[in-house]
Amino acid sequence: MWQNTMKINQNSSPPTPLHKGNVQNQLNQPNKKSKRKKKYTVHGLSGFPNLLMNILLGSFALMCIFPFLYVIIISLTDEKTLARNGYQILPEIWSFEAYRYLWQMKDQLLQSYTITIVVTVLGTVFSVAMIALFAYAISRKQFKYRGFFTFIAFFTMLFSGGLIPFYIVATQFLHLRNSIWALILPLAMNAFYILIMRTFFQRSVPESILESARIDGASELRIFAKIVVPLSLPGLATIALFSTLGYWNDWFNALLFIDEPNLVPLQSMLMKIENNIEFLRQNSLAGGAQNDLLSAIPQDAAKMAMVVISTLPIAIAYPFFQKYFVSGLTIGGVKE
């Protein structure tokens, strides 16, 4: 369910091109300053189609948000009621027990939270910087080996070494085992984002601006920092958002490389609980062993409560990124 809600979040990012269109349109007609648009705007639909569209999109939005609301409801249901009645939209007995349970394990949760946040922030910065630098280099025609480096990035999209070689490289050559870098480095470079950024740089940063900067005597680094980055904020913000989501939701690297309980990120902790329940359910152990172990694992409501507290921050962070999609493009540009 967690995966689903997050996918929905990703899916809901496409509004950006729409905004972009709007903004560019405003730019092209600088004389029309009126912010109050009239009803017969070319972008609007009228009457019945409009209604239909609203209903369609509205119900789609509801479908997206419902699973998450459901998760919240389940997390607020009494555990015994859950066992007896299953999941219900309006449970018989409400209870905050699950959150009280989480409060009891707050040490571990806080630790995992810290790890997740550190990994996400550090990872996003790291990953955006690396991707942007790489993409910028291969986006410029002056760069002699751009074909070669583009190919190197592109190649990894088609072929990968597979899990075992990846594991061997990370543990035996890079010694990433039980280090926070094991959670950051594997996700830092992404060929797909590099290609997106390359195209973005090519489209939105015209050669003539760079040329003017060069005439003024700016160095390449200065050009990148002072001109290219501000001009490409929307693109960078998109990549940053993707990376943030990627880091926040990553549990697989932790599964592979992390044994130390105090280095386990939040999502991985959730996965572990899920996997443990699955394991203990499928492998019947003799005697009382199983029940003892199961009782040490959070029950349904507590699991859902964990989903809630691990999803909320990222859901809240999303609008902050969103503002860049709108405002980014309004800054500067050249007419050709």
Binding site: L256, D259, N275, N276
Partner: peptide, 13 residues
């Protein structure tokens, strides 16, 4: 110790 659900996969790796 490796968690119940992770053990088989991690050992395999």
């Amino acid at each position: 110790q490796i968690d119940w659900g992770d053990y088989d996969q991690k050992m395999q790796l």
